[in-house]
Design a protein around this nucleic acid. Structure first.
Lengths: 253, 253
DNA sequence: CGAAAACTTGATTAGCATCAAACCAGGTGG
DNA sequence: CCACCTGGTTTGATGCTAATCAAGTTTTCG
């Protein structure tokens, strides 16, 4: 069900050699995409990708720029190819709360596939590269390849699991516990060199339901304890055994 | 797309009169179900209901009895027909946290449709009546009637919205704010006579991330203030204007 | 370089947890 | 029928955690 073997060193693109289908520039771009295997179109093979008749915009965002806003009438979902996106809502108290993060190969804005408005604001935390998948495109591909629907449902369930985890591990317990769990979660979005993105104190506060002062104190303490090290202000290196031990202690204490 | 007109006073059942299809006892039960219109099979018409070849068990649970456990290998989803079910997980600290409630016409255990284990324990809070929908049945009906898949996806999105709301309104802010928001949420599960189910202090604590003592103090205070009245220990009557006013004040203060 | 933004640190306070004890309703069995 | 027990609830006294208020310090950027 997955893509045919590929050889990046080959001079001619395998699509042209192995398949007698008209050349489709969008399909080639998707075939070459580093996250395709883990992204929504991972279930589609080269032939099926040829059927893409819509433009898939490649979007780049700088930190703080929105991918979409909750009020928008959604017409597309987005696959995150690089960087971290935060999904945030404002509570009726007027506070902003980050309810989830999305990293490499995550699909956000699924609700647009149902013709609904977005359920949250999606804002870039780091430099973000994303693909815009118009609803019409997904509908069309889903008709031809029902496996895509199953994948979509799995992603919904994945988002739900994520939300439940935030409720149980990131929204309850002592401030220190929540911070430790956040650092553990951030390792899921680590970069090739092993460093992780370190959110602003504001963002940490919005994720963990604490003030920026408390977040700052906790980060400082963990630096002193050697659990994390911050080569630069927006990145950290984690001493994983120390982090796990700290979590274990916090759960016991 | 929806069900044909029905007249409950008619002596002969409309299925027999209007449709030349073999009689199917399960289909008749479903046609007569009070929540069908709002439940998963609301998108199916009488004819399509005839295609049900699986037994849909009718389940009754007393408070505290589990519908399923998180470790179970899920083979069915459940439509709640009456009562309130809580979805709860235990955190790695060993605490139990209620992450969502499901009432009349909610569908729980959707993840079983993907062949996964359940993501949480589902436990009856009140006397609960539910229908067990085997995965095979849903798969089969979805093949014949793709509209069902869309409905399923809407329910996933609905659960996600619910989870996000719990994160923003029920897991952050002062203890009083969270309690007031919980009471507001509980009005969604109100009974015909306008009373609402009042959870145990334990349950309130597990939903709002507070101790049973704090929950008890808050409930007592709200009774003194006249925001709620408790005709019996497991039910409350809410003075809605007073509740909304209290919420407004708490958001401002 | 200077201003703004983000972060850190300290002192004080408010809110909630904890510990402890009484209270109450509903069953059970003598 | 009442004494008794049990599990849930309420209330009080005390202490700790994290919010708040208030300066500083560092970083960023025009």
């Amino acid at each position: 069900m997955n893509s045919p073997r590929r050889d990046p060193l080959q001079a001619l693109h395998p699509l042209d050699l192995q398949q007698r289908v008209p050349f489709n520039p969008q399909a080639r771009v998707c075939m070459d995409c580093g996250v395709r295997r883990f992204a929504l179109f991972g279930v589609l093979d080269a032939e099926e990708l040829q059927h893409i008749h819509y433009h898939i915009a490649d979007i780049t965002l700088e930190p703080g720029q929105p991918l979409y806003m909750a009020s928008d009438h959604g017409t597309a979902a987005y696959t995150v190819r690089e960087g971290v996106v935060r999904l945030e809502r404002s509570s009726e108290r007027g506070e902003r709360r980050i309810v989830r993060l999305a990293g490499r190969s995550s699909l956000v804005g699924l609700e647009a596939m149902l013709g609904q408005t977005y359920a949250a604001d999606a804002v870039a935390c780091t430099t973000v590269r994303a693909c815009r998948l118009p609803r019409m495109l997904v509908d069309e591909l889903a008709r031809e390849q029902p496996g895509l629907l199953r994948d979509l449902m799995k992603r919904w369930q994945g988002a739900l699991d994520e939300a439940d985890e935030w409720l149980t591990e990131l929204s309850a317990g002592s401030a220190r516990w929540r911070m430790l769990r956040l650092l553990l979660k951030l390792t899921e979005y680590d970069e090739p060199d092993g460093r992780i993105w370190l959110p602003t104190r504001q963002e940490m506060g919005a994720m963990l339901g604490m003030t920026i002062e408390t977040a700052s104190r906790l980060v400082s303490a963990l630096k002193r304890e050697g659990v994390i090290d911050t080569p630069d202000v927006r990145h950290a290196r984690i001493d994983m055994p120390a982090l796990l031990e700290a979590i274990r202690l916090e759960a016991a204490g």
